[in-house]
């Protein structure tokens, strides 16, 4: 059991931290997919915009900086829905996806122009960096942000689960995700449900922006791009058809990446992507509808 031997508590902590952040992103992507059947590739650029907001407001009180990050991300999320998603509602999935590529590139290009005004690439969000310090727990060094990430993820997921199961808008959102046409026939307001999903998705992107910026305060135009791609993969692997399988998929790919990275011999860690993506292919071949989607045909077949 050499693999297990190389995994210590610190790695496990990092794995949970990474999994937690990816789970939050998975929920953000999965919620919008649920009501719009749209895979939003530009989700990472929402996070990037939040990170830049944190960087540019570094001089402000931390709370004000974080609030403005959320405000910017949610506003951008709503604008994306109004200007892009809404006109695309009747388009094919391929067109929707490729359009969100274009939007992702657009936002990244805009960020590049804004960023380069002072002649240097990248901004540092220094004010919230102290969260990245390590604390010692039983002899193991764990970064504070890991606890924050896991705490925020658990809190956000429980809150969201309560909202979805206990409130009217939650019920309507779940109904729309399951059968939009019937939901509308029952009088569920499509725009209200979509706005709800888009706002919650934006709030989650804001939270992720804060967590990722703490981990890596150096903000560049491609901030969170790679994470978003990995989460999108995880979401489909887990089962994009349902929110909880999508979330588990996001968590799993984050968790597994950290574990595999620790388990690989040091000179082979450069091949981490190959190992993870090979696992992805194996899982997709064995369970094309989703790793966690039991006994049910998934929407992936329709896309």
């Amino acid at each position: 059991m050499t693999i297990l031997a190389s995994i210590d508590l610190q790695t496990l902590g990092d794995a949970f931290g990474q999994g937690a952040i990816y789970a939050l992103m998975a929920v953000g992507i999965g919620l919008v997919f649920g009501v719009l059947r749209l895979v939003n590739f530009a989700y990472g650029q929402l996070i990037m915009a939040g990170a830049y907001t944190l960087a540019y407001t570094s001089g402000w009180p931390v709370a004000a900086s974080i609030v403005s990050c959320f405000a910017v991300v949610v506003a951008l999320s709503l604008a994306m829905d109004r200007l892009v998603f809404r006109p695309l509602r009747s388009s094919s999935p391929a067109v929707m996806l490729v359009t969100t590529f274009a939007i992702a590139f657009l936002l990244q290009a805009v960020a590049l122009i804004i960023d380069l005004r002072d002649g240097q690439l990248g901004q540092v969000a220094s004010s919230i960096a102290p969260l990245n310090q390590a604390v010692s727990v039983g002899g193991v060094d764990v970064r504070k942000v890991t606890f924050v990430a896991v705490g925020v993820a658990v809190g956000a997921l429980i809150t969201l689960a309560l909202v979805l199961t206990r409130t009217t808008i939650g019920l309507h959102t779940r109904a729309a995700a399951s059968d939009f046409r019937t939901a509308r026939l029952l009088g569920v307001r499509a725009n209200r449900v979509i706005a709800f999903a888009v706002v919650v998705s934006g709030l989650l992107a804001g939270a992720v922006a804060v967590l990722l910026t703490v981990q890596n305060p150096f903000v560049q135009p491609d901030f969170a791009l790679e994470d978003t791609i990995i989460v999108l993969v995880g979401v489909v692997v887990g089962g994009i058809d349902r929110l909880w399988t999508a979330t588990l998929g996001g968590f799993a790919i984050g968790f597994v990446s950290v574990i595999v990275n620790a388990a690989l011999p040091t000179d082979k860690t450069v091949f981490l992507p190959s190992v993870v993506y090979a696992l992805v292919i194996v899982v997709l071949l064995l369970r094309p509808a989703g790793l966690f989607a039991w006994g049910r045909r998934a929407a992936v077949e329709r896309v």
């Binding site: 009217t168 399951s178 019937t182 029952l186 009088g187 569920v188």
Partner: peptide
Amino acid sequence: ALVPEGRRIFGDFTVEENLRLGLAAR
């Protein structure tokens, strides 16, 4: 109010949740 062909109830939801969905048009 339409009772659609094939009933179109939400099978994963509870009976009460299905009924509460009907309140959307109240």
